[in-house]
Design a protein around this nucleic acid. Structure first.
Length: 364
DNA sequence: CCTCAGATTACGCAGGTTAA
DNA sequence: TTAACCTGCGTAATCTGAGG
């Protein structure tokens, strides 16, 4: 068995030194506080790096970061910036050690960090940052896919008081939006069309969009197809939830408490009234790919990845998110990266192209 | 207890669209 | 033409849940 670093460092990464200018704290959808380093921009392996995640409090301690420190930076896998260490001999003697944010950087709410968790969470459920991230998640491509309503527009709409909660997305006043700076009649019309389009999304996307803790896109689909509709989920007890394949104690409890929270019940009823889809419609047309797993890497000649992934599901196959011995087929396009080399190394994965894949399903 | 995969959070680039 | 923004492509690190 090869050690982990053999995959991570296929090429010896380029190491550059730069300065730590600041540490900012981001608040995620779940309230997780993530420290991010602001760096003096430095050119490494083909692009300029100016920010770098520090993951959590322990990582800051491990590196023993001080403000203004000179740090060594690499791009892991040629993509993701990482601080590997501090050049301590260049440290100013009076420099201040970085201490983790004592409160939520956005709402000043108390932070909570569990006994054996390295991650701190903002405990204020009304934290504006959390609400903004929840809205972004709801509109995002893999959820309701409301084209045009991204990070910056959501932030503007919140500031203008146009949006306070998910329901408000469906009650926007497009005439006043058309008069906003840098928007116009065309933008407003596009946005309206995108919001309407989202009402046709299948139940699994809606369930994912709600942003229930531990329920990502795959778990959402599992739950949607098992229960079939929201009422079955709303009334499911813990035991029933745990009986679903791939659902264990923690996820079952997370779903149960979401479904039994009064605010969430109101949200679901409002969205149902607005016309969102709370019943799962199977779009499966054949069993040609049943019990086989697929993954796409690179850019395919004619189909987008989302299209391929939809086709796999339609024919009864399963999409996985990483290369492992459980992967049956890797569909490879141009500019494939580390997934291809990992699959070749494993040897057990069938490596195919778009045409091969089409061939597998075309008689159905 | 161990292994694997999913969930979450993160960064960079190219390219398209739209308003100004 | 340009600025601003979004989309859609690529990726890693970390933690943690699920299940053998």
């Amino acid at each position: 068995k090869s050690p982990k670093w053999a995959i991570a460092y296929k090429f010896k990464p380029e190491v550059k030194e730069t300065k730590l200018l600041d540490v900012q704290y981001q608040v995620g959808r779940t309230g997780a506080i993530t420290p991010v380093a602001s760096l003096e921009p430095v050119y490494i392996s083909g692009s300029t790096v100016s920010r770098c995640t520090l993951h959590n409090e322990e990582e800051i301690k491990r590196l023993d970061l001080h403000l203004g420190d000179t740090v060594k930076v690499i791009k892991s896998g040629e993509i993701i910036p990482k601080i590997i260490e501090v050049v301590t001999k260049l440290r100013q003697p009076d420099s201040i050690p970085i201490s983790f944010a004592p409160f939520c950087p956005v709402c000043n709410g108390e932070l909570y960090r569990g006994e054996d968790s390295p991650i701190s969470y903002c405990t204020n459920t009304n934290c504006p940052a959390q609400i903004q991230r929840q809205l972004e998640h709801f509109c995002s491509r893999d959820a309701m896919d409301i084209n045009g309503l991204g990070e910056s527009l959501i932030s503007r709409f919140i500031e203008l008081g146009l949006i306070k909660c998910i329901q408000d997305i469906f009650a926007l006043d497009y005439q006043s939006i058309a008069e906003l700076d840098r928007l116009g009649a065309k933008s407003a019309q596009n946005l309206k069309a995108a919001v309407e389009e989202s009402k046709t999304k299948n139940f699994d996307k809606v369930l994912f969009a709600l942003g229930i803790r531990y329920v990502g896109d795959k778990t959402a689909r599992t739950l949607a197809s098992f229960f079939g509709n929201i009422d079955a989920l709303l009334t499911a007890d813990i035991e029933t939830l745990k009986s679903v394949p791939d659902i264990g104690d923690i996820v079952a409890n997370s779903v149960f408490s979401y479904m039994n929270n009064d605010n969430n019940k109101i949200l679901i009823e409002d969205l149902r009234r607005i016309g969102l889809n709370f019943t799962f419609t199977s779009d499966q047309v054949s069993n040609a790919l049943s019990s086989r797993t697929f993954l796409v890497t690179g850019t395919l000649p004619s189909l987008g990845r989302k299209e391929i992934e939809a086709l796999v599901l339609k024919h009864g196959g399963k999409i996985v998110s990483s290369v492992s011995k459980n992967l049956d087929y890797l569909i490879v396009g141009d500019n494939a990266g580390s997934k291809l080399s990992k699959a070749q190394k494993l040897g057990s994965v069938n490596i195919i192209n778009e045409a091969d894949f089409i061939g597998m399903i075309e008689d159905n």
